[in-house]
């Protein structure tokens, strides 16, 4: 990636985050990529109101590698959808890279997704009929980039994930790990502010999972902001910071050393 290497990726401290989150209504400074303030999301499930998020405050500084954990029903999918600009909160603010996303309309959200977010899904979500190259080009298509530049940048992104040899293969001709690496190339090709991964290893065996985690590790080291949603503690333990959700609120938000120690995991 083009960003310069840093000695040690700095983690935001709890105190810093509290200051940012408490300044309701104010646009956070540029170094804060993600700021949510009192985000609530409710669903009407046939007359019954389900409160998926009950006021979530998160602040993520640029270059952080954060895992969002929680059991099913904790609201982590809802939070991921909101962070990924696929959904908007009923209440509260969401600032992404200095833009107030929580009040945006459909097409503005589409633009933000295209520019600011790179998605990596559990089920890869590649277009089955398109080649790896065409899949990686897709975000650039919607960004309105010329076909020559698209091709060049997509090739670069695929080479960065060691798939330069397989650009003309379709997803069904690739292994699970390769598919996920195509998805990572696609997520990064438009140089997003955040890489947002939803259970990125959920459909992979443990060896391939390790391989994908190493890719994430490498990205985090080059300064890419990574947000990873998972329910597996040992996967979450790869991140520098772990946020645990329970019943629609944040239960804990701490460095991974604290998290792993609490769970008795070894790194």
């Amino acid at each position: 990636m083009s960003q310069h290497l840093e000695e040690e990726v700095p983690l935001s401290t709890t105190a810093e985050r509290k200051i940012i989150v408490d300044q309701a209504g104010a646009a956070p400074s540029k170094e804060w990529v993600i700021v949510t303030r009192g985000v609530k999301r409710e669903y009407d499930m046939g007359g019954e109101i389900v409160r998926a998020l009950r006021g979530v405050d998160i602040a993520v500084r640029r270059n952080e590698y954060v895992a969002i954990m929680g059991p099913s029903g904790s609201g982590k999918s809802t939070l991921m959808n909101i962070i990924g600009c696929l959904d908007t909160p009923n209440e509260g603010e969401y600032w992404l890279n200095g833009q107030l996303v929580s009040t945006m309309k459909d097409d503005e959200l589409a633009r933000v997704r295209n520019k600011e977010i790179g998605f990596v899904f559990q089920t890869f979500n590649l277009l089955p009929r398109a080649t790896a190259l065409a899949n990686v080009e897709l975000p650039l298509v919607y960004a309105g980039i010329s076909s020559n530049e698209r091709r060049e940048r997509a090739m670069e992104a695929l080479e960065a994930v060691q798939l330069g040899e397989r650009v003309h293969h379709r997803p069904n001709e690739l292994s699970g790990g390769q598919r996920q690496r195509v998805a990572i190339a696609r997520a990064l090709v438009n140089r997003p502010s955040i890489l947002l991964a939803d259970e990125p290893t959920g459909n992979l065996d443990s060896k391939t999972s390790e391989e994908i985690m190493r890719v994430f590790e490498g990205l985090a080291e080059t300064g890419q902001t990574v947000i990873m949603v998972t329910h597996e503690p040992d996967i979450a333990a790869h991140a520098r910071r772990v946020v645990v959700l329970r019943d629609g609120t944040i239960e804990s938000d701490e460095r991974r050393e604290v998290f792993t120690e609490k769970l008795g995991l070894t790194l």
Binding site: D107, A110, R111, N114, F119, L126, A143
Partner: peptide
Amino acid sequence: TREIGIRKALGARRKD
């Protein structure tokens, strides 16, 4: 439907 979802996630607007 899924393809449409993928396209939208990657930034396709309604008109696209």
